[in-house]
Amino acid sequence: MKKTLRILFGQRVKALRIATGMSQETFADRCGFARSYMSRIERGGSNASLDAIEVLARALEVEPWQLLASESTHDDDPELVVPFAADGSCFHPGLASTRDGSFGVGDKASQKRFDTFSEALEYLRSMETAKWRRPNQSGNWGIVSAVKWDKLKKKVADE
């Protein structure tokens, strides 16, 4: 099923926000929006006005058109190698907490939270066996262990 423009837009806003290291709440405050409205935008549940797009772009320090442009593919980035679990899922930017935009990595007893995907990935690389939090097919969050490392595919990163 093809993603709607609202969903693609929301994913783009979320990816750029996460890249800045801002939590959703901090970003909403910077924009002057309610966090619930920001959440709806990032999930593709709200149809952002042109004025809202302008505010979002200013807060992200990008041009408004860049919020509508698709991200460049990660497939050409030899550095973006991520851990994959036995079920084929991998660690990717879409695993940021909807609550605060952070990433949970490590064992249950010694879990660490990182504000950015790149910081979390760097920590995963330092672990003997990379472990991270992600939802299962039922939507319940749990910890999985890496069985291999491979390039992050754009389709996986967008999920």
Rank of each mutant, 00 (worst) to 15 (best):
K2L: 12
K2N: 14
K3H: 10
K3C: 05
T4N: 04
L5K: 10
L5A: 11
L5T: 12
L8G: 11
L8H: 10
F9E: 02
Q11L: 10
V13W: 00
L16T: 03
I18L: 15
A19S: 10
A19G: 06
T20M: 09
T20F: 01
M22Y: 15
M22T: 04
M22C: 05
M22E: 04
E25M: 13
T26D: 11
F27N: 03
A28R: 09
A34C: 01
R35L: 02
S36I: 12
Y37F: 12
R40W: 07
I41R: 02
I41H: 00
E42N: 08
R43F: 05
G45L: 11
G45T: 09
A48R: 01
I53M: 12
E54M: 06
E54N: 15
V55T: 13
L56V: 13
L56W: 04
R58L: 04
A59S: 14
E61L: 07
P64G: 08
L67Y: 05
S70H: 14
E71W: 05
S72R: 11
S72I: 07
D76T: 09
P78W: 01
L80R: 08
P83A: 00
A85Q: 00
A86V: 14
G88P: 03
C90M: 06
C90F: 01
C90G: 05
G94M: 03
A96S: 11
G101Q: 03
S102G: 10
V105A: 00
A109P: 02
S110Y: 05
D115C: 08
D115L: 06
F117V: 03
S118V: 08
S118P: 04
L124A: 03
R125E: 09
E128S: 13
E128I: 10
T129C: 06
T129E: 01
T129N: 06
A130F: 01
A130Y: 03
A130L: 05
K131E: 14
Q137M: 13
Q137Y: 12
Q137N: 15
G139A: 13
W141G: 10
G142P: 00
G142L: 07
S145D: 11
K148Q: 15
D150C: 07
K153S: 11
K155M: 09
K155A: 14
V156C: 09
A157H: 05
A157G: 08
A157S: 15
E159A: 13
